[in-house]
Every structure is written in C-alpha cells, then in structure tokens.
C-alpha cells in the first residue's frame, strides 16, 4: 500500500512538472473555458446554460484522451516499463495510477470551472450536485479508460496522437459540447451516440440541470460510461506490453476496438 501511495504521489506531481501534461490537464481546458465563456456566452444562450457541464466535459475529454496516452507510450519506448518490471511494479499500477492522478487534476479543474462560471459568465449552478458529480465521475472513468487503452495499443507517439484525435475531435464536435446534440441532423445525431461525451452531457444535463436532450435514461448513460471505462481498462490490461517495441502482447491491437461495444449497444437500445 505504501508503494501504491508513493507511486500515486509521484504521478500526481508529474502532472504538474511535465509540461505536456500541465498543458492538457490545466492550461488547455482552462484557457478554452475562458475563451468560450467570453465569446460564446454572448453569441449563444445555450452555451451560458450549459457552460458548466460542457466545459467540465471538455476538460475531462482533453485531459484523458489527449493527456493520458503520451506519457504511457513514451515510458514504454524509453524502457521505463522494463525498469518497472524488474523492480516489481505491477502493470495494473502503471495503468491505474496515471488514470487516478489525471482524475485528481481534472477534478481540480472541474471545481474551478464550476465555481467560477456563475461569477464570470452568469452560468447556472447544477440543481443536483450529487447527480452532477456522478455524471462527471462516470465520464472520467470512461475517458481515462480510453486514454489508457490508446496509450497501451499505440506503437509510437505518432500513432497515439492519431488515435487520440480520432476520438477527441468528433467527441468534442458531435458530443454536445459545442452544439446541442438535439440540434444535429438525423444521421449525425445517431453517430454522436457512439461517443462518450454524448452520454456524459446527457446525464449531466438531465440530472444536474433537469434538461435532458435526447431522452436517454441517466442511469442508462451512466451504465454505458462505466461499462465502457471498465472494458477499456480490462482491454488495456490484456493488451499491455512491457516490451519497448510493443510487440510482445497477448492479442492483436485491433481487439481494442471492442471498447466501442457498450457505446454501440447504447446507441441501439437506449
């Protein structure tokens, strides 16, 4: 337990010392929040109403999908995993601890957004804090699972960035952060349901502000997000490789696509 705590403490400080992580965990979400809050709250009344859930979701999306994979890929490429292995650091800790510390950093950012938005941009606070927290937490589980999985399967940083952007850009554009999902045209609206942001926004809007967009049951959204997150961690554990070249693993990397199953099922059945 002491080893776990020491590892957790080190990883937490890494989030502040590493410029790349500092950018993805703090500077980009808060900078974007300040920009969007200033510009969009004047142009789009929807944004003011949804500023807190959309900017919290944006912070979690950026931190987990764009922030988490790179250090994992770099650590494997540089031989850090090999060093960890010979000193008995479990693979589970290598995946889980960065996800937990990312969650801690992003929780701090979410607090800043939540408490500053009413003052800065007249954004309404959530009606139900616990349900808002549950929505954000379940998205954090889903996002960090995806981030870790990308870091595990990507053979190098270029591939990692490509995979991260494949998730990040459509999830941001179609997941209800920029444009309300209900305003998207039919087919695109359907496609948006395979992105975790859609479910995160739905549960936060429904439970936190009493304004569901798609009529998806909040419990169903949470089920999709949590099961998506757990499946991503499980696939990450299965496909994890200590090898610098990421060649010796238990299964082919395309198995990672199974992580979409909960979202596809959600799109069909919810």
């Amino acid at each position: 337990m002491k080893a776990f705590t020491c590892h957790l403490q080190f990883e937490f400080f890494t989030g502040l010392r590493n410029k790349g992580l500092l950018m993805m965990y703090y500077l980009m979400p808060l900078g974007f929040y300040a920009l969007m809050g200033t510009v969009m709250s004047e142009l789009n009344p929807f944004f003011r109403d949804m500023a807190i859930p959309s900017m919290v979701a944006f912070a979690i999306l950026t931190g987990t999908i764009m922030g988490l994979p790179t250090p994992l890929v770099e650590a494997r490429e540089k031989g850090i995993f090999r060093n960890y292995r010979v000193h008995g650091v479990p693979a589970l800790n290598i995946m889980l601890i960065p996800a937990i510390t990312a969650g801690l950093h992003l929780a701090l950012v979410a607090l800043v957004i939540t408490f500053s938005a009413p003052m800065l941009f007249s954004a309404p606070l959530p009606e139900n804090w616990i349900q808002f927290f549950l929505g954000a937490f379940s998205f954090l589980v889903a996002g960090s699972g995806l981030g870790v999985l990308i870091g595990v399967v990507a053979s190098n940083n270029r591939i990692s960035l490509l995979l991260a952007q494949l998730v990040y850009i459509p999830a941001m554009l179609l997941g209800g952060l920029m444009v309300p999902v209900e305003q998207l045209p039919g087919f695109i609206g359907g496609v948006s349901r395979i992105f975790p942001t859609t479910y995160a926004m739905e549960v936060m809007r429904a439970w936190g502000w009493g304004e569901p967009a798609l009529g998806i049951s909040p419990a169903g959204s949470i089920l999709v997000l949590i099961s998506g997150g757990i499946l991503a961690f499980a696939l990450g554990g299965y496909l994890f490789s200590w090898d610098q070249n990421n060649t010796t693993r238990r299964g082919p990397s395309y198995l990672a696509a199974l992580v979409l199953v909960p979202y596809i099922l959600g799109a069909i059945f919810l």
Binding site: F10, T14, N18, G79, I80, R82, N83, V86, Q244
Partner: peptide
C-alpha cells in the same frame, strides 16, 4: 537499456 520518468 532502461530509463526513469524524466521528472522524477
């Protein structure tokens, strides 16, 4: 061939 995290 091994390394540690850059910021440790």
């Amino acid at each position: 061939v091994s390394a540690l995290p850059e910021t440790i």
